[in-house]
Simulated assay, not measured.
Amino acid sequence: MRILHEPLVSLDGTPAELECYLLDNFPEIEADRRRPCVVVVPGGGYLECSPREMEPIAVRMLGYGFQACVLHYSTAPSCFPTALHELASAVAMVRAHADDWHIDPHAVLVGGFSAGGHLAADLGVEWNGALLAGFGFDAEVIRPDGLMLGYPVLSAGEHAHRPSFERLLGGRADDPAAREAVSIELRATAAFPPTFLFHTMTDATVPVANSLLLVEALRRAGVSVEAHLFPTGRHGVALGTPESMYADGTGVEECVQVWPDLFRDWVGRLVDSRSTHR
């Protein structure tokens, strides 16, 4: 196994990197194995990157035989679209290194939590748009093959987690047009990647309405979506296990602990379906 720290170019010069957890191949097992890769995007309200949604998630993905890369992206005072540019760069980097990192370039997924879920979903909206094309990105190189969204911040409307959008937009936070432009449920089209999503009904920080709005938007657009709503769990539940619990001991939720296995199975079906059509 290798752990790599790959720097990313930031629009405003702030530090950003891709931390890569890479399983090795061995002739005795399968010398030419290509694995799905999950680019993990932690939450933190665009104020920080939460460690609880970094290494614990990556290690679980490794246990499924996936490669995992954690995005350490720029947060406040950096504003939109700095972090989006970094995520696009991270996906491009993964595909560029698919051969030497033993990655299936057709199975590059982005998994985001909370505000990281917004960032992941924003790439799902913007991958083929003019904004990222203007930075020189090739749409097919930065396109996620699928998204995993955990209790995501999505809507800047009635159900918004306002601090996230205030940090994301900076001085434009009160501009209705700017807020609409980053409200994912308003911009989802048929080009949005297949999506796996989970949320808890008792999330008091980012209302479950965020996820419900996106599910309905994806249904209307004809995008494949698998959504799981769990009855209990505070915001930021991560794995729902002691491995990712908060320092005060909260965040252990037995009902939530099944989501990684459900996600693993979803990825398997997604990869199988795409292999059949290639």
Score class of each variant (00 low, 15 high):
H85S: 09
G44T: 10
V39H: 01
L270V: 07
L71R: 12
S74L: 01
L23H: 06
V206F: 04
V256C: 13
Y21G: 05
V271Q: 09
L62M: 07
R167N: 11
C37R: 00
F137D: 01
M93W: 02
L197E: 10
G150T: 02
L123R: 11
H5V: 06
A133C: 01
S50C: 14
W101P: 02
P81T: 07
H102A: 14
L270K: 10
L62D: 00
D248P: 15
L18T: 09
A88N: 03
E53L: 04
S164W: 03
Q257D: 01
A98K: 10
M245I: 11
N25Q: 05
L47E: 11
P207E: 00
G44Y: 00
F196L: 04
D104H: 11
A238R: 11
D203S: 08
S244W: 14
M201P: 03
P193C: 06
E6Y: 03
W266I: 04
A92P: 00
L154T: 05
L213G: 07
M93T: 13
N25E: 02
F196R: 11
V94Q: 02
A173G: 14
E30Q: 08
L109K: 09
L47W: 05
T202C: 13
T232S: 12
W266R: 08
P105K: 06
R187A: 15
S114L: 11
H161Y: 13
P207R: 04
R167Y: 12
G146W: 14
G43Q: 10
H102K: 13
A83W: 02
S114Y: 04
L131D: 07
E140G: 02
Y246R: 14
V141S: 09
G150L: 14
D145L: 02
L239K: 06
L218A: 05
G116H: 10
G112W: 03
G233H: 06
G44Q: 01
Y73E: 10
L213V: 11
L71W: 08
C255E: 13
T241M: 06
A177K: 10
E6F: 03
I103P: 01
R269A: 06
V206A: 12
A31D: 13
L186D: 07
L4G: 00
G171C: 06
E17G: 09
R162V: 15
R52L: 14
S164R: 07
I29W: 12
F192D: 11
G157H: 11
D272N: 06
G13V: 05
I103E: 03
V9R: 12
A107Q: 03
H118L: 03
Y151L: 05
G136C: 02
G170H: 05
V59R: 15
L22V: 09
I29F: 09
L229T: 11
